[in-house]
Write a protein that binds this DNA or RNA. Structure first.
Lengths: 358, 358
DNA sequence: CTGAAAGCGCTTACAG
DNA sequence: CTGAAAGCGCTTACAG
């Protein structure tokens, strides 16, 4: 641990010194006040743009000049201690490598910044330690609120979370107990995808779904079934398999699907990352896409254009989801029930991986 | 702005109250001290595991019991104000969507956490605002130090950065002026890649390099040239093109390369994201990989296995780079000159995209 | 309209 | 070996 600066009380002396060039002596409001010949309360009001403050333009300018001259920057720790707000939002994700979360982060970060906050992103499994411990660290007054995107939440984490006494919000998943979440219309995304296949004339449509516990997986499966039923088709359990949201998972599930003997003419994949593996597995099995099997997936990525064949996808407003999550966290009361679906347009992006059955 | 809690001085009253269940009355050290019948200084020493403190085990247990009973959590703002340390590290990256940074973040986060700090990751272009403004926000005493990974840094940012008076370190790039950086051995990675092609018998080896300003691009190009020269081959400027580190950039550069009429038998791509586009462009041009053209790229990703054909790559210790960066920032003095190359093994991962020239 | 004062919750030299 | 006190840098009701 580094010692706190010694500095007995040389504030006055430093006031006239040249701008604090990085090193050493921290410049405080008192220094600015002394140089501008006003009280530090006035400096505070000027810095925070207090509407109530009436001050001669000339005095205000003197304060600004002093701030510039000394290179003053306000101290967040002192501010936080006084106001009991940190201006920081936390966001928990399962994994930085998942491009879906990259979109959510980007949206949340932009919104937070626009509202004068910064965003602190952490992974639940960081450094092999339990998410619970990470939550404890954030809970020491480091954040004003917590966004929890995707991934499962254990009971211990849930417990810790509520003991923190800060507002939180689930993103892209619903909770078991309290209603505090923002999600997308995953059911509709699945509907759009499967409708596209149905319109092309497919009837034997398989589903490579998400992991058992995932709330998004549940809703996408519901959409898949609903679309089939609307066309008087009965969902065939042999055509419905489970994969985690990774390329390898998608490949394994597809191999399993084909081994079952059931030959679909089209596959609806619940997640674009899995779909990458689905394409690999189909190729390995000697099947052509889309001639033998059509493939469509939820979530669009720049990468989709470069897959072989280029992947048809359903684009979801992930960035908007992140932004809205940050907004809700910042504008609602901790006790409020929040159960919102972001209704931004969901788009079908037709590329090369879907076509009529042969 | 929310008002600070009113709370005249009911500390004593709350001390005996049930655990602060989230809402309202914040529990402080004084509360714990009162309940445990010791001075709050003692609580502080117990909480911080002060080695110098000698205390009866019984008393220590009383303090711990009080902490548990009240659900006490120390307040970071007060701590920071007192100690002039935040326990937070900042990391600036150009873009969350780039999987290369995901690896760096993961390494840095784990290391920071292991050292009792949290990591705050931000993007330079967040919400369309200049990196400079973001730096200003972080500069208000929010972080103890700043890691700057990749991406260009403007003069204004450089200026702001040094005016902040906090230690910083460039990651995966060198600076123009002061030596404060950790990098990988990019020259050697390029050497390994090109050597692989040379060993297969290739002589007309093209280079799809990184963007003009990028320091990694410079060093990978140097490695490419060095490998050729070591085999008495003269680098051909017509075989050396520039792309940004994206699939689309790689595709454009390859199209340009082929349009020039020069037909390489192999391509060394400076970055795996570009390589995705290189494969697409070759396919579009009707060329087979590796029969007509071999392709190898720097950086390995899970995705490489699923490209068509599976991409041969050179794996770099990106996670270690992130971890080492965090470690250096936390263990060196702000004035120290740091110019380190992380020497973890660089591995050649041979897949399907390279073979002998036909 | 401006200034003086209190106090946010902690840590740590210092005195007893 | 433990406790009382000072003070980190701010903000904001309140008094003048």
């Amino acid at each position: 641990m580094s010692n706190p600066r010694p500095r007995p009380s040389a504030a006055r002396a430093r006031a006239a010194a040249p701008p604090a060039s990085g090193r050493g002596g921290r410049v405080t409001m008192s220094d600015v006040a002394a140089l501008a010949r006003v009280d530090k309360a006035v400096v505070s009001r000027v810095v925070n743009d207090d509407k109530v403050l009436s001050i001669r333009p000339e005095t205000r300018e003197r304060v600004h000049a002093a701030i510039r001259q000394l290179g003053y920057r306000r101290n967040m720790a002192a501010r936080s201690l006084r106001t009991a707000r940190t201006g920081t939002l936390g966001l928990f994700i399962p994994d930085f490598a998942n491009p879906v979360y990259a979109e959510i982060i980007t949206g949340a970060e932009a919104e937070a910044l626009a509202r004068g906050c910064v965003l602190m992103v952490g992974t639940s499994t960081a450094g092999g330690r339990a998410a619970k411990d990470y939550l404890e660290v954030l809970g020491e007054g480091r954040v004003d609120g917590l966004l929890l995107a995707g991934g499962p939440i254990t009971w211990a984490e849930q417990e810790t979370l509520s003991s923190l006494g800060i507002p939180w919000l689930l993103v892209n998943r619903r909770g078991r107990t309290t209603a505090r979440h923002v999600i997308l219309d995953d059911t509709r995304a699945a509907l759009i995808a499967v409708e596209h296949l149905l319109e092309l004339g497919h009837e034997r449509i398989a589903h490579v779904g998400g992991p058992a516990g995932a709330d998004t997986a549940r809703r996408r499966r519901a959409g898949y079934r609903k679309a089939l039923r609307q066309h008087e088709l009965i969902p065939d359990p042999d055509l419905d398999v489970v994969a985690d949201y990774t390329p390898d998972g998608g490949a394994r599930a597809t191999t399993e699907l084909l081994a079952g003997g059931a030959r679909p003419t089209a596959i609806f994949v619940a997640n674009v990352a899995s779909a990458i593996g689905v394409l690999t597995a189909l190729r390995t099995a000697g099947l052509s896409v889309p001639e033998d099997v059509s493939v469509i997936a939820v979530h669009d990525l720049p990468l989709a254009d470069h897959l072989v064949p280029a992947l048809t996808t359903v684009r979801m407003p992930l960035r908007r989801l992140g932004a809205r999550a940050a907004e809700l966290l910042l504008t609602t009361q901790p006790g409020d029930l929040i159960s919102e679906v972001v209704r931004e347009p969901i788009e079908l992006i037709v590329r090369q991986s879907t076509g009529p059955p042969s």
